[in-house]
Every structure is written in C-alpha cells, then in structure tokens.
C-alpha cells in the first residue's frame, strides 16, 4: 500500500516538475538513458540507498563498484524494476528512462523490462534447449514464425559470441553448457528481445578468467548498440571496460565520474582507499 501511495506521490511530484521546467530542458533530459534523482530505497525498515543522483548517457558503459552490501545491486535493480518482486521494498525519488518516469502508474513493467534487459550474477539459463532459451522473450511477444525465430537465434548467438560453439547443436539442453557459455547464452537471450539497455549484475564473478575475458570483449563489441550498466567487484574489470564509474559505499553514491579520473585521481579519499584496496 505504501508503495502505491509513494508511486502516486512521485508521479505527482514529477508532473509538477515537468510543468515548471522550460521545454528545452526537457529535451536534454530525454537524451539521458537514465536520470536518477533523489533516490532513497528501503527494504522494510532498512535504508539501502540514500539520496542517489545520477545521469547515465546512452551507448555508454557504466561500472558500479563498491564493497558488498553497498547498494549497487539494489540500484541496478531499480532500473528495470526488479525490486518490485521483493517484499517490503519501498522508495522515494524519481527514475527517468529516456525522460519517462518508469515508476509511474501507467508504466507497463513488462514493456520496460523488454527495453531494459538484465543479466544476472549466476548464469540462469532455463532448463530448456539452447534454441528455446534464446527465443523465450520473442515467444512472449507472440512471434511464431519459424524463419524469424531462426534468424533471431543466429543473430543473437553471434552477437553473444556463442554461435560458433553451439550452432550444430541448438537442441542441446542449455544446462549442458559450461558456466561461461551459459552466461553468454543469457546475454544472447537478453539481446534477442532487442533491448536498449543491458544491466549486468557481476556477470563474470562466477566465471573463470578466460570466460571473463570473453564476456568483457563481448561488452566492448556491443557497446555501439546498447547502454551497459555493470555491477562489478573487480576493480580491473571496471577500469578496463567502462567509460564512467560510480562508487557506492553504505548506500551513498560517493563518487561518479569518468572512469579514468576515478582510477587516477579520485576526488574522495574513500574512493581512493577502496580502489587501492585498503578496504572492501
């Protein structure tokens, strides 16, 4: 109940803001992939995120770093409303995707999640064939045409750099793949619904170094077409792949800047301590 009331309140506040603001400014808002304002998130009584403000550019790779329990995964899950599935979740603030408030009443969550895909920490292929895994999202959209599906499977698996390894055996169970292959299959499954954004929650933390490298290459190769927001525990990974880095600590966004700057001359002492491995 609280949540609904909160959403309405947020919606109203947003309306007021939009009326007040000049038209030109609204256009620039739309040019952001995500524009997060004054975001507080609670699980029950516990406050997980405190007054987060962040703008994310389209077609960019943003890394979210910070010690365990700092709220970075919770932040990620705000962007495709996966927190909605958690009992006791509530929030204040605004999350705009392409200028539209995604927590508005009229938002169709399913449509949002098609545009904002997600890859999870642990590879979670469905216990179906490789083929069925990739077309799961398309099937939901009502695509039945075999040739369209075949084409989508090939294209997605190629983009996820998995095609050459599985093309002769698409009927094989996805569970028979290695961990790294499974994760790339999950990426292919996400790509297949043609999202604008791909959220990744420590996508390589359960993988060996070679598979990790493959996933990173993949993110690089795909960055022209998608906006990536990647939670990672791995400092090197963050510095290698991202243009922007956000450092979270105890629910606060301590620093958010160009990755190069964060890793060479961070503005905050806390950030420096973390990236140099003094804690975390």
């Amino acid at each position: 109940m609280e949540l609904v009331a909160e959403r309405e309140k947020v919606g109203e506040r947003e309306k007021v803001k939009q009326i007040k603001k000049p038209v030109i400014k609204q256009k620039t808002e739309v040019s952001y992939e995500f524009d997060i304002r004054n975001l507080d998130v609670f699980y029950g009584e516990a406050q997980i995120l405190k007054d987060i403000n962040m703008k994310i550019e389209p077609r960019s790779i943003t890394a979210l770093i910070g010690p365990s329990g700092c709220g970075k995964s919770t932040f990620l899950r705000m962007l495709n409303r996966m927190n909605d599935t958690i009992d006791g979740f509530s929030f204040n603030g605004t999350v705009l995707h392409k200028g539209g408030n995604i927590y508005e009443k009229k938002t169709v969550v399913e449509d949002l999640r098609k545009k904002v895909g997600m890859v999870f920490q642990k590879p979670n292929p469905f216990p179906k064939s490789i083929y069925e895994n990739v077309i799961y999202g398309l099937r939901l959209n009502g695509v039945r045409n075999k040739s369209i599906l075949d084409e989508a499977v090939e294209k997605s698996l190629k983009q996820a750099a998995l095609w050459n390894e599985v093309k002769d055996d698409l009927k094989k169970s996805a569970l028979a793949l290695s961990g790294g292959q499974q994760q790339r299959l999950c990426i292919a499954r996400t790509i297949a619904v043609e999202p604008e954004v791909i959220l990744m929650d420590e996508p390589a933390s359960a993988l060996d170094p070679i598979s990790t490298a493959k996933i990173e290459e993949l993110i690089f190769a795909l960055q022209e077409n998608y906006t990536f927001i990647v939670v990672t525990h791995n400092m090197h990974q963050a510095s290698r792949i991202s243009q922007k880095t956000a450092f979270f600590h105890m629910g606060d966004l301590i620093e958010y800047d160009d990755t190069e700057k964060i890793f060479t001359k961070p503005a905050q002492k806390l950030t420096e301590n973390y990236i140099t491995g003094r804690f975390g």
Partner: peptide
C-alpha cells in the same frame, strides 16, 4: 528461473 523470465518482460 522467475527472475530470468521476468527480466525478459514476462
């Protein structure tokens, strides 16, 4: 399983 499906827009 549930998260994976929901995240694909189901």
């Amino acid at each position: 399983f549930r998260d994976g499906s929901l995240a694909l827009g189901a």
